[in-house]
Amino acid sequence: MPTAAQIVTFDDAPGPPGSTPWVDGALLETDVAIADHDPAWADRFAQVESLVRGALDFRALVVEHVGSTAVPGLPAKPIIDIDLTVADSTDEQAYVPALTAAGFVLRVREPWWYEHRCLRHDGLPTNLHVWSPGSPEAFRHRLFRDWLRSAPEDRARYGHAKLAAAEAANAAGEHVMQYNARKQQVVREIYARAFAAAGLV
């Protein structure tokens, strides 16, 4: 498990000069679409979880539904975010070929940011985020999800921020990373309350 200091410290440093996280020319999505919460998202997570565990068996140490689709009542992009923990996210040969055979495509590789990898499955719209054990970011994802499930005021605040960010980003023709930046201040404010409630600060 990461330390409290690691959990509450965000790594916002950019990648090395000239680096790109995008694999094989993957494109950033535009036209950010936010939908009302759909109870079927939980069923889709279960379907993708089964697919991942079937592909990796014991190599899938943890498979968690995270992000906004994991929070009942919260509007979200209708793409399931899943955190997958494997023994070593840098050892791509240990998991990428098996996931590719199951329909996933490696889209993101970020060695400078917690050795994060992300695969997409367009048939079952999913972002599969891959981490090594003890990742502070994966821990934050679970904390944020659980806080929003139990804090209706922050859930409503975040839902409003998401809708406003999507509207502004779409009007400006921005991509999804710019949408994320537009809501970051609200996200960090909510994290601060979640950290305090958990006794991390």
Rank of each mutant, 00 (worst) to 15 (best):
151 A>T: 14
189 E>F: 00
32 V>C: 05
15 G>I: 10
6 Q>E: 15
95 Y>H: 06
46 A>W: 04
44 R>Q: 15
181 A>V: 10
102 A>T: 09
32 V>N: 03
86 V>Q: 02
156 A>R: 15
1 M>Q: 08
175 H>M: 02
87 A>F: 06
21 P>S: 11
88 D>W: 03
78 P>R: 12
161 A>R: 08
201 V>M: 02
52 V>E: 06
20 T>I: 04
121 H>Q: 10
25 G>L: 07
33 A>T: 14
89 S>H: 06
47 Q>V: 14
102 A>D: 07
193 R>D: 10
128 L>P: 02
29 E>V: 09
12 D>E: 15
168 A>H: 07
34 I>K: 07
52 V>G: 03
137 E>F: 01
44 R>A: 12
112 W>N: 11
185 Q>S: 09
158 Y>F: 15
17 P>I: 10
191 Y>V: 00
129 H>Y: 09
56 L>W: 07
165 A>G: 07
12 D>F: 11
117 R>V: 01
112 W>Q: 15
41 W>N: 02
106 L>E: 07
119 L>C: 10
161 A>F: 08
153 E>Y: 12
71 V>I: 15
96 V>N: 09
72 P>I: 13
117 R>Y: 03
111 P>E: 11
125 P>I: 05
127 N>T: 02
2 P>Q: 06
80 I>G: 04
24 D>T: 05
199 G>S: 13
141 H>Q: 05
161 A>Y: 07
74 L>S: 03
162 K>A: 06
21 P>F: 11
171 A>D: 11
172 A>K: 07
176 V>A: 09
68 S>I: 13
191 Y>S: 00
